[in-house]
């Protein structure tokens, strides 16, 4: 079995006449954390939605775990989707369920676990992502943005997925929580060996957790390589991104930490 969990080939995505992606190629390796960066509106979220099957693609191929996504029937597809964990940009917690039920829902639906067993695990997952014990019974509407992100991560982790898709997970977190989130992601990835497709604008996250970085611009992936190689790429946007004031600061602090 190959070490590529996701392989995207010549992908095209359109909304009406607006072309979001054209001739886009990208691979995600087993166990890696792939950072996906790009300006606002370059189609990072759309790319994520295409891979997890929420947006039908207009052209090209997406292979997931060696299977062609478009060729799968409904049951096979559901089996593939169960191996994904997705954290949406807005959290997308089920607003009529409290946090505990949010996390327990996939466990109850997809495994033979009883509800008390599922809730027991759900409590652990909520604590694992750094939520206080009292939060389990709260409704999503009563939470701050950062807490929603954490709870959504707990839900994405509920089934111990093979690939975790995170859409700007640290946006809206305070720097300390963001750093802890990064650390948590590394710990879990190292322990569980899942791959991570991480859309982010957070340079610190990029420097501290990503094994490779893919840059989305001009409807394509410009480069997908290690951070050093990407930062050295001759492209105006990339140069601005990595060597602008924020980029330099994040780079310096990474050097210090190593």
């Amino acid at each position: 079995m190959s070490d590529t969990v996701i392989h995207i080939d010549n992908l095209e995505n359109r909304f009406g006449t607006t072309v979001v992606h054209q001739g886009l190629n990208l691979s995600v390796m087993r166990g890696e954390i792939l950072g996906v960066v790009g300006g606002s509106g370059t189609g990072k979220s759309v790319l994520l939605r295409s891979i997890v099957g929420l947006k039908p693609i207009d052209d090209g191929d997406i292979h997931v775990f060696g299977q062609r996504l478009a060729a799968l029937d409904r049951r096979q597809r559901a089996a593939v989707e169960r191996r994904f964990g997705v954290l949406f940009q807005q959290g997308a917690l089920y607003s009529s369920l409290n946090l505990l039920e949010n996390v327990a829902l996939p466990l109850v639906e997809h495994t033979p676990l009883s509800r008390p067993e599922a809730e027991q695990i759900a409590r652990m997952k909520l604590a694992l992502v750094g939520l206080p014990a009292g939060a389990a019974e709260q409704m999503p509407a009563a939470l701050s943005g950062g807490m929603i992100k954490r709870a959504a991560l707990a839900r994405a982790l509920a089934l111990d997925p093979d690939v975790l898709f995170l859409d700007e997970p640290t946006a809206g977190l305070d720097p300390i929580s963001a750093a802890r989130f990064d650390q948590l992601l590394l710990t879990l990835r190292d322990a569980l060996g899942f791959s991570v497709f991480l859309v982010t604008h957070d340079l610190d996250t990029l420097y501290s957790v990503c094994d490779r970085v893919a840059v989305l611009a001009r409807k394509q992936v410009l480069v997908a390589d290690t951070l050093e190689n990407v930062a050295a790429t001759q492209d105006d946007w990339i140069q601005d991104y990595f060597h602008g004031p924020r980029g330099r600061a994040a780079y310096a602090s990474m050097k210090e930490n190593r």
């Binding site: 409590r123 652990m124 909520l126 604590a127 694992l128 014990a133 879990l188 190292d190 322990a191 569980l192």
Partner: peptide, 13 residues
């Protein structure tokens, strides 16, 4: 690390 994280989480619970 995995086990320690879970232990820590369970303490919070």
């Amino acid at each position: 690390q995995l086990i320690l994280s879970v232990i820590e989480a369970l303490e919070v619970v």
